[in-house]
Design a binder for these strands. Sequence first.
DNA 1: ATGTTTCTATCATAGAGTGATAATCGGGGG
DNA 2: CCCCCGATTATCACTCTATGATAGAAACAT
Lengths: 252, 252
Amino acid sequence: MTTTGNSPMRSVHRALDVLKVLELAQQPLRLTDLAQRAGLHVATTQRLVGVLTEHGYASRHANGYTAGPAALSTAHAFATTSPLRLVARPVLEEVATTTGLTASLYVRVQDTRVLIDRVEGGRRPHYSLPIGERLPLYPGAAGKVFVADEDPDAVAARLAPVALADGTLLDTEAVRADLRRVRENGYAVSVDERQIGTTAVAALITDTAGRPLGSLGLSGATSSLRDVTATPLPADTRRAAHAIGARVPAAT
Amino acid sequence: MTTTGNSPMRSVHRALDVLKVLELAQQPLRLTDLAQRAGLHVATTQRLVGVLTEHGYASRHANGYTAGPAALSTAHAFATTSPLRLVARPVLEEVATTTGLTASLYVRVQDTRVLIDRVEGGRRPHYSLPIGERLPLYPGAAGKVFVADEDPDAVAARLAPVALADGTLLDTEAVRADLRRVRENGYAVSVDERQIGTTAVAALITDTAGRPLGSLGLSGATSSLRDVTATPLPADTRRAAHAIGARVPAAT
DNA sequence: ATGTTTCTATCATAGAGTGATAATCGGGGG
DNA sequence: CCCCCGATTATCACTCTATGATAGAAACAT
């Protein structure tokens, strides 16, 4: 899996890789399994999960290891201290109520995005609690905006081919074209890309220095969002994203 | 802070210590600050948070580092895969509705306990989301049960003196006496210990082999829980805790 | 019981982690 | 505008830790 070759801090890198494997597995993993998926020697893996377990970030059960409870604590701390999250909250709420759509806040973690906060616009509050979900960068409006400003060729080559929810495969060229449009527009649109029946508009959130902080996505039923590009929604999204970024103190 | 002397896997231990410092700080910490609290050299600390940040477990802002978004992902994974949590859920719900009290599930992490899940019994759902909160082992019924079975002298010496919510200080002897009672009873009671106005009854959850897995606490207003020891609540709590433990596959 | 798999312990060697030192950056005040 | 001070980043030689091959011990299934 995530091969962290030879490098300084190797053991720490590896430990976090192991943790990531546990996270992605979504089921208890036996030591051997874990080692295999992490691409590490069994002995090494054992030492690493041992430490993780000791600190509560991994957990051992009858049928293997899973992520551990300490992650909840750290997540709790993140949720209550992250400047971005704190600053964005009121904006999410406002935009969710005015548009009736679901407002989602993502941040990028390596080549994935993580859902940091969400305010449902409609009535039915989803009972699945998706906060913390890790999603790919490409299918999905709120992911694309992260890579739209990078070198199109490199990105497209790295991400493609991409499979959409309906089974369509996007080749390098299609991805590149799409990303170019995102860059030109300053916002991204996704129609049934990741979830059939869901349309989303998203914009990048940057600090005052222009550094990317996260992304704001507004999503709703495709049926009620025909031809979004012709509506004021994209502009609203950009405005909201800008409002968030403007209130976050710029990092050095 | 958590001094992890010389030992194998030192860097990993230290990395997790740094993460713990970030978690406990509850505010952005500058590098220097962080190093100081972690008891590490600044250069070392920088390398460690660097790795943590790269993987998303720490986050850098204008005014320092905080815990990072990846913790949310890991927490999400934990929440959806932890056998204990999954098995306990229905029991929490049942006991919360039948008693009208709040049912809380804790697990132990080193010398702390972490709130893993909670079902509110009353009507007013607290809008603070306390799941993930890290609390001390001693004040509080659901914490005491974790240490009641250990060597009383050692534990009492390690934890005392303890400050209660009303300002009372418990010395070693008082702690020991209290823990002895917990052990004899098989459950713990806390009246206004950690939260003034809140009374709780808790029991240890063990697997079929007797190993401690977590603890179950039932809490409510002190005013409505006079003389709990004389009620069937303790027995109910123990029964529920046992029901949970019985459904968790025993670890090796 | 007996084979088979999974987990834990041991150990020599390579090479990574460490921390002192120095260079660089950034911001505030004079 | 410049200087100064605190904070952050880079450099580097030495020590000691992390590594993985191997072997041993459990656990498990047949």
